[in-house]
Design a protein around this nucleic acid. Structure first.
Lengths: 242, 242
DNA sequence: CGTCTAATTGAGCCCGTTCAAGCAATGTGG
DNA sequence: CCACATTGCTTGAACGGGCTCAATTAGACG
């Protein structure tokens, strides 16, 4: 295995059940290889035939769907350790696109690997389902935000959630986290217009709740911002249990 | 197995891979039993300890989350064949409630059954993951709607989506489908106010696009409504493939 | 016949939208 | 080295979709 494999759900992570020697070999068998992608490139294209899926090893990405008339909804932001392209394989149709937000490195698997996992590596398969369930949870949270929260609350919620996700995946250093996103992307994630996002954001900035410059995010008072965003304190354990 | 078991993902469904004799026995072993719930009752309580999960055999239900201040977001509506309470077990925390919309019958499983499935019945485990992935897909679609569509488009989208779901689960008869929901529930699902939902709905009614009376829904022109709601024609196959 | 819940309709306001202009940083070609 | 285009951020002004408040109606139930 190469660099960063410790965050791959199919690899050996202390947070997860350790794979056996045999499992490792089987994984390596179906592991097509690693892939580097530049910022701004499409990792997954809307409507494409689902053949492979990926583990995001380094960098950040964005998953979105575009309506016929051009309106776009960002579904979520992806962090190291996240899976990409599993849903399309399960459902047989790629209904969203994934774009790299920074230089990204991916671990590439063939779709046949999925069944191999279920057949021969139940712990890996369980792990995989756990990831899908977690993503479902995040989508639900986003839906709550877009549906019920005000613009100010939504922004606050988004920053806190992203911050917490960033910490879980080890992207926060010195109280700073890379967040290479345009305001337009954030607006599309929250169902707001660019203009209003900007104005609401500048208010949060003037209150010293958010510092976001040059693609780097800082939250001087994460808990205060969480209160603004009505973020419930539910913590998702990294470790799943049976 | 008792009535309606053919729709249970853990049972023998022609759309799915048939379970072996041994699988059937193992499922029955962990199947706690059947449960009947009246309309309006809570099947799953927010914050409860996740111990069991269910298959919805008959009737309809609603999954929602409530914010501290009372605002409520309906996450989705549940149809026969859907799983209930799997996400909480996987993630260790029940962050949403599920309420019966009609008299409901459920098949009850113990949470230990999940691991049994991964360990001994890979086809069932795969099936289960497929269900989670499908639910993730629907949540994504809902997020797109709430985030990008206008009230009119949202309503149209919702009716068409529910209609299609209803047809897949065999709830449509004579061009009619039971839809035992208050306007308030629909409003909370779409992030709209009750008043605006009502006014938009009455417009759709006057255009003969929607007929919804006494808990029964009819769509005289499903395709026209789909055009109003910008529903993409992507069809999720009932049959998954490997 | 009073009470309760759900649907309906009107009036007025506001949050978030669209339109529009300006600015700063970066890049590109002559 | 400058002219010019491009991309993203910022800000002002005005409109409007959807909100809140409020009152009425209709049906179900005791």
């Amino acid at each position: 295995m190469t660099k960063n494999c410790e965050i791959c759900p199919f690899s050996n992570n202390p947070a997860f059940v350790a794979p056996s020697k045999q499992e490792c070999e089987t994984v390596n068998l179906h592991r097509i290889g690693e892939m580097q992608v530049e910022a701004g490139c499409e990792i997954l294209a809307e409507g494409s035939d689902p053949r492979r899926f990926f583990t995001l090893l380094e960098g950040q990405a964005m998953r979105y769907h575009t309506l016929e008339d051009g309106r776009r909804q960002v579904l979520n932001f992806l962090f190291p350790g996240d899976l990409i392209g599993l849903e399309p394989i399960m459902l047989g149709e790629t209904s969203h696109a994934v774009e790299a937000l920074s230089p990204v490195s991916l671990c590439v698997f063939d779709r046949t690997q999925i069944w191999q996992m279920f057949a021969k590596m139940p712990e890996r398969a369980f792990m995989l389902t756990w990831q899908v369930a977690r993503e479902e949870h995040f989508l639900g949270q986003a839906l709550i935000s877009v549906g019920q929260r005000s613009a100010r609350e939504s922004l606050a919620w988004a920053f806190v959630s992203l911050w917490d996700r960033g910490q879980q995946s080890g992207m926060v250093e010195d109280g700073k986290m890379p967040f290479p996103v345009r305001q337009q992307d954030l607006a599309d994630a929250l169902g707001l217009s660019l203009v209003h996002t900007n104005k609401t954001l500048s208010r949060l900035r003037s209150e010293d709740l958010v510092v976001w410059r040059d693609g780097v995010l800082q939250l001087p008072d994460r808990d205060a911002l969480a209160r603004v965003g009505l973020v419930d304190s539910t913590v998702i354990k990294k470790r799943f249990y049976l």
